[in-house]
Design a protein around this nucleic acid. Structure first.
Lengths: 200, 200
DNA sequence: GATGATATCTGAACACCGTTCAGATAGGCG
DNA sequence: CGCCTATCTGAACGGTGTTCAGATATCATC
């Protein structure tokens, strides 16, 4: 990463987002600093301010990329039309948890409302898009129970709770060193066993 | 909080924990700093190091206090023996979420494995104790489904997920400005509706 | 009670952080 | 060409956690 020759970067905004994304991916959120991102982009510490206002602005962009990536993890189960609705929910749970473990820095950032510009309108859009699939699966699976928002949120909460607790090391109190997939399967078995009869 | 007269504090360790706990309670985790805690205790910035090693050590103590408080929020539903098992789980979910909203700084800290000394043995003890009640309720309620650890973790994950998502403002995408209690009720309705028949 | 060992705390230093801002530089456009 | 505006520099400021030699107090032992 040799120092730029030109005084003007050309596309500093994009470069800073890429640098920040890489830091969060490599070192997690604690390893991130605005100055380090500037350093990687070969630019002075004051440069990011013009493009992002503050560190929150830059981290918001990284969080948005995280939602895109999450959507990619959740897509395959939906595209497989041969799967039952219950199977789809199952596979999305595994995908959600795998995303959290594959991209812990992004996952944590996405749910750190203090580190991010919560009021960015794109933020709501992207999270809605990422969860559209989950919403569809939850509704298809869970036709009989409660009203729509309750179904979606209940499913989301159960899956998100697994991911968060596993990521932060809380599952080991119950399961020792069992794999995340095994933990998810056991929890799903308990949560889905309540179902009266598998739909379609 | 006038400056101490004595060179030695007397019980600095306790004073620092109390100060840190107060900061987290008043200003949240982002408002916390080791130096501010030292300032409140009327002591130099280097003093905490001797008692806690690093900032993680002090924050671990605050997190432990958080678990105690959580246990207090979860206790009443268990003590009410007239309640059905489902009702107990319901009330514990509301208690868990209320704790998160009443003590956001503590809640976030308790699940920030980067900010805390994860390997502190007391950490596992206290979290186990706080969740014992939840475990008992989950098992009593959910006799038929899955094996024990799966039942406990599934219930915990669902409840924790609600609390986390609500606290970080993610429920508003689905429910607007609805109260947390209403959101929890709707999600519980969907999750519990799957039950074949109410036990006992 | 005096003496020595040990625990405790100070205060200055260090490296780093995010943010600000006057000024240097470049590109776009008349 | 010359100007205007966006962009970026680099130094400064106040803040952070951590380290450490040295000052101070407590405690055990004589």
């Amino acid at each position: 990463m040799p120092p730029r020759r030109a005084y003007h970067h050309g596309d500093l905004r994009t470069a800073l987002i890429a640098a920040a994304d890489a830091i969060v991916r490599e070192q997690g959120l604690e390893g991130f600093s605005l100055r380090e991102a500037a350093r990687r982009a070969g630019v002075s510490p004051g440069a990011p301010a013009h493009h992002f206002g503050s560190v929150k602005g830059l981290l918001t962009e990284v969080a948005l990329l995280g939602y895109d990536e999450l959507a990619r993890y959740l897509a395959p189960p939906l595209e497989d039309t041969t799967e039952s609705a219950e199977g789809t929910v199952r596979r999305m749970a595994h995908g959600y948890v795998r995303f959290a473990l594959d991209h812990p820095g992004h996952f944590r950032l996405m749910f750190r409302s203090d580190a991010v510009d919560r009021d960015d309108p794109r933020y709501g859009d992207v999270s809605a898009r990422a969860l559209n699939g989950l919403a569809a699966a939850a509704c298809a699976f869970d036709k009989a129970s409660g009203q729509t928002e309750g179904r979606i949120f209940g499913t989301w909460a159960a899956i998100h709770g697994m991911a968060h607790l596993i990521l932060e090391g809380k599952a080991q109190y119950l399961f020792g060193t069992a794999s995340a997939d095994a933990v998810v399967d056991l929890a799903l078995a308990a949560l889905l066993a309540r179902l009266p009869s598998p739909p379609d």
